[in-house]
Structure formats: C-alpha cells, structure tokens
Amino acid sequence: MNGKLDRGGIARLIAGDIPPGSYVNLGIGQPTLIADHLTPEQNITLHTENGMLGMGPAATGDQIDGDLINAGKLPVTELPGASYFHHADSFAIMRGGHLDVCVLGAFQVSGTGDLANWHTGAEDAIPAVGGAMDLATGAKEVWVMMSLFDRDGTAKLVPRCSYPLTGIGCVTRVYTNEAVFLLDAGSVRVRATYGVPFTGLASRIDVPLLPPAARPRAGDKPAGRPG
C-alpha cells in the first residue's frame, strides 16, 4: 500500500485521468496545480473564465502582462491556437456544456454529488461565488480535488452538505489525499485508497461506500471522450 497523497500527488493523478483532447477548466487555487502535470501528448486545452481558451503556464519575468491573467488574477501565457472572447461567451462555453472536465476545490461534497465550495454561511463571512456555480452546473464532468478530512478530522464527504450549496448532484468524482471516489446516481464507489485500507476509510465516513471494483467497471473508465 502506498502512502497518503500530497497535493502534488493528487494533481498528478487527476492530470493523468483527463482524457486526451479534452477542454478543461481548473478553476482557481489548488486545482490549478494540475496544469503542471499535463503532458503535450494529452493535447488538453485549458479554459479560463475570464475569456480565454489555450491558456499556457504561469508567466514569469518579461512574459508578465497585466492584460493576460487567469481566473485567480495571476499572470499567465498563451499557447499557439489560443483564443479570446468576452465574458458572456466564456460562460456560455461553461453553461452550454462545452467543457469536458472542470476540477474544483470543495468544503463538502455529498454522496449524491452536491457540492459546497463558495460560502461557509458564517454570519461574519463575506460571500464570493465567482464562476463556481456556472462551472458546477455546466461542465460535462465535475471533479473535486480536496483533502478528505478537515483540520478537526471531520470528513468532507458527507451524507448531506451543511454549508450552502454551489450545485446539486453535479460532482462525478472526488480526488482526495486518502482515496478517489466515483459518484454515480447516489452510489459512491472507492476507486483506490492511499495509505489506508478500504475498511479503515469506510469506518470514518458517514456515507455508504462500495469497495474498489475487482476489475474495471463502467464507472472506472476515464471521462467520456469529448464529443
């Protein structure tokens, strides 16, 4: 059994699972690490909500250009074949179901695929939603990248989200430091565990879990090829 995954390990795992030729949005924050592990052979096109397809790696030195930033407002580069478009078009790309995969962070995911990732609901919190609801609603596959437990040891994969929702029944996979979960019509199958046995995992999570399939099942296949 291998050990638990670190952030880089989760990012590498997700990068390897993205089907070749996909159009992908990596949101902001942690999931943007995935871009570092994509290979040219995969021919992945990255979308950024602020109006670009064909986003390249982070800009450094002379490459930094205030007019060329990502969703996290960090300077990036453009790749050959890139395109720019206005915000309404950029979100039509999301909402219209044109993105093959998006990867988002999360506070909580429910066993039925509900996502909570924009607001803790705390009275003194200033809410900010950005493009999270549009991505959760629009992408063909919504994958979550998160730690499985919060700092208090509370599981973030839950029967029902207690934080305000971002989207309902939208998450199809959850990649964590201890396991990968495949969500399908209310059932949650563990694809693999990292550093913990399946039984040890199941006892700490309040969602019924199916064990890893002995041989590949339909739900184990990579996301559908882009249409």
Binding site: E49, H86, H87, A88, S90, F91, A92, M94, R95, I126, P127, A128, V129, G130, G131, A132, M133, D134, G138
Partner: peptide, 14 residues
C-alpha cells in the same frame, strides 16, 4: 451587496 454568479452577471448585462 448583490451577489450574482459570474455567468449570470455577464448574461444579465448581455
């Protein structure tokens, strides 16, 4: 503050 999802904001303006 009126908080609007980003795509809804763009589309309401459009």
């Amino acid at each position: 503050l009126e908080l609007v999802p980003q795509g809804t904001l763009a589309e309401r303006i459009r």
